[in-house]
Design a protein around this nucleic acid. Structure first.
Lengths: 201, 201
DNA sequence: CATGTGAGTGACTGTACACTCACTCCTGTC
DNA sequence: GACAGGAGTGAGTGTACAGTCACTCACATG
């Protein structure tokens, strides 16, 4: 008979991935020592390498999980939309995305991943992620290519603005860029727990 | 009387900045050792630190120069526009930008800089750069906030697409994202030399 | 008790890197 | 020819880091 209890090392692995999202988000791929990953997860540095073959694999696991969460948020937003008009569905998805990334970690991770995409595994994971959310936005909203393209472009703009803190600046150019963008305010963000459903209890 | 000949060390410095753009573009801020910067510039590692106080200062100099070139390209595009309609001027600027970044270095550098923007000096330089090109696009095109915002957002989308090589993919989602984006083709790019004017000969 | 297994670690290794320092070499000036 | 000063370098230094290895410990099973 197959094992019914998930092994403890598996749960450690997912916990490590969760904390790695936060840790990598703060200091990036190259800027994050494996000792920091271990420390934030509350395990010894050596044990990191029992759970993952190397630093890159852990980063990729974190990035994949990041896109899981993003896709789940988009789905949540879409299904909460009153109208089925493509523009409205995309609008609702955008709102859910903005709430998801209010804590910045998922956004920061994506920016760092793009910069680290000269590492083949990271490049692949990143491309996979963009493919997933774009395909999802396409099929779920039934919007035109132009609408979907605009949706993703605004997402990227949002990353730029948030990384640099532009919405907080009181200058003409900054206001122009930030206008209408739901900038991540800490008020009532969508927490990760609200977004993920972990199967049967 | 003031010196008429630029000191040789000054010319070395600008040459170093030029080659640093290429070197940092390939491997990013943290991923580029100072020895690589020296090697690509054809000088000894030690001399890098006579020309700049530290690695960060050199990166910032490269990034500042990058935005100089971008702004110059936008100006060139704008003044080549037949119409003065904001949408047309922005369109022309976009075309010039696409040609400028055909060699990818300036684009890659911006992506790496965003990811390294937890370093205060890099954050400041990056914000300055975005401010410059946004303000320039605003005043030169006289477009609405929404038009300028869209202009910058499409630029960011272009960075994402180019970093990941998405326009080369033959899939529905990739085509949707790439549609209408002038993706950097190596055909007849606008070279840096065509863009900069170095004062009197 | 003997033995096996998987979780978890302390201590280490080799290397790469940012930055320094004492030095050489060249050129112009008196 | 003596000297000043700037261009440029070889040879280091201290440190941080990815990954390894031999090991302990807790517990389960016969």
């Amino acid at each position: 008979m197959a094992r019914t209890v998930t092994s403890t090392s598996q749960s450690r692995r997912t916990a490590l991935v969760d904390s790695a999202i936060r840790t990598f988000a703060r200091t990036g791929y190259l800027g994050t020592p494996t000792t920091a990953l271990a420390q934030d997860a509350g395990i010894s540095p050596a044990y990191v390498f029992k759970l993952f073959p190397n630093k890159t694999a852990l980063f990729v696991a974190a990035l994949d999980r990041c896109f899981d969460l993003v896709e789940a948020a988009l789905e949540e937003g879409a299904s909460a939309s009153a109208s089925v008009e493509p523009a409205d569905v995309l609008e609702a998805m955008g709102g859910a995305y903005a709430r998801l990334i209010a804590d910045r970690d998922l956004l920061l991770l994506q920016v760092h991943a793009l910069s680290a995409s000269d590492v083949p595994e990271i490049h692949a994971s990143m491309t996979r992620g963009v493919a997933r959310i774009t395909s999802f936005a396409q099929s779920r909203s039934r919007g035109s290519d132009a609408q979907v393209q605009r949706f993703v472009a605004v997402g990227q703009l949002c990353h730029l603005l948030t990384m640099l803190g532009i919405p907080d600046l009181d200058q003409s150019w900054a206001r122009a860029l930030s206008r209408g963008i739901r900038h991540p305010s800490p008020a009532a963000p969508l927490t990760r727990e609200e977004v993920e459903d972990d199967g049967p209890p």
